[in-house]
Simulated assay, not measured.
Amino acid sequence: MDHDRTAAPLSADEADARARQLISEAYAPRYEVPTSYRDETKPSAYVPTPPVAQPGRPPMSQRATNASVLMLSGSVAALSVGGATSLVLYTLGQVDPVTLAVGGAAPVALVLAAGSLLKAAGRAKAAAAPAEVHNHFTGPVRQETTNVSSQTRGLVARTTNRFDG
């Protein structure tokens, strides 16, 4: 309750009552409900947590990791070949154009030949007959075989799973 400045001044008893009211309001608790809670139960020894990315290379499949390592080592090889070629050209001062073409095409031809050799080896491995399986049983047996083949294609990956069995 606000008082006008033009109102009559308070008596000593009224001023004392008003001061007591203001002091009790100032020291009164602001909230009737608790503002915090402490859980006293013991945490369990094992809590499942989601995986967290670790520092270093980001998590990826084994195939992607192999491709990444292959690209990094290929870039180191290309750097050394380019540096050696630059050093030879610098020391010679001038080079016959035919010699330059042969020197520049040789590493490319080597990489293409190695790539086709690896493809041929991969095709030969894929064409090899699968290992024979011989099972010997005594007594009543129920045997089930399930073959699952997965194929992923496209820039935006689309996976097709086929179950045989």
Score class of each variant (00 low, 15 high):
M1L: 11
D2V: 02
D4V: 01
R5F: 11
R5C: 06
T6F: 09
T6S: 12
A7V: 01
A7C: 07
P9V: 10
P9D: 08
A12Q: 11
A12K: 10
E14D: 15
A15R: 15
D16T: 06
A19G: 12
R20N: 10
Q21D: 15
Q21I: 04
L22I: 00
L22C: 02
Y27E: 14
Y27R: 11
A28T: 10
A28E: 10
R30M: 08
E32N: 09
T35C: 09
S36D: 12
Y37M: 08
D39P: 00
D39N: 15
T41F: 07
T41C: 09
K42I: 10
K42F: 09
K42M: 07
S44D: 11
A45F: 04
P48K: 10
T49M: 04
T49L: 03
T49F: 01
P51N: 07
P51M: 01
V52L: 05
Q54K: 06
P55R: 03
P55Y: 00
G56L: 02
R57H: 05
S61Y: 00
Q62T: 14
N66M: 12
L70Y: 13
M71R: 14
M71L: 12
L72W: 11
S73N: 15
G74F: 07
S75V: 10
A77I: 10
A78Y: 10
A78R: 08
A78Q: 12
A78W: 03
L79A: 13
G83L: 05
G83F: 07
A84E: 08
A84F: 08
S86R: 14
V88R: 15
L89R: 03
Y90L: 05
T91W: 09
T91P: 02
L92N: 07
V95K: 01
V98P: 00
V98G: 07
V98K: 14
V102C: 08
V102K: 10
V102Y: 13
G103Y: 05
A106V: 08
V108M: 07
V108I: 09
L110H: 04
V111L: 12
L112G: 01
A114R: 02
A114F: 00
G115W: 09
G115P: 02
S116K: 11
L117A: 15
L117P: 00
L118A: 15
L118K: 12
L118Y: 14
L118P: 01
L118R: 13
A124H: 06
K125C: 01
K125G: 05
A126P: 00
A129G: 07
P130D: 10
A131W: 02
E132P: 04
E132G: 08
N135Y: 08
N135F: 06
N135Q: 09
F137K: 07
G139V: 02
P140H: 14
P140S: 08
V141Q: 02
R142I: 09
R142Q: 11
R142L: 03
Q143N: 03
Q143V: 07
E144W: 02
T145P: 00
T146H: 09
T146N: 07
T146D: 06
S149L: 06
S150H: 13
Q151W: 04
R153N: 05
A157Y: 00
T159N: 03
T160C: 01
T160K: 09
T160D: 05
T160G: 03
D164P: 01
G165N: 03
G165A: 01
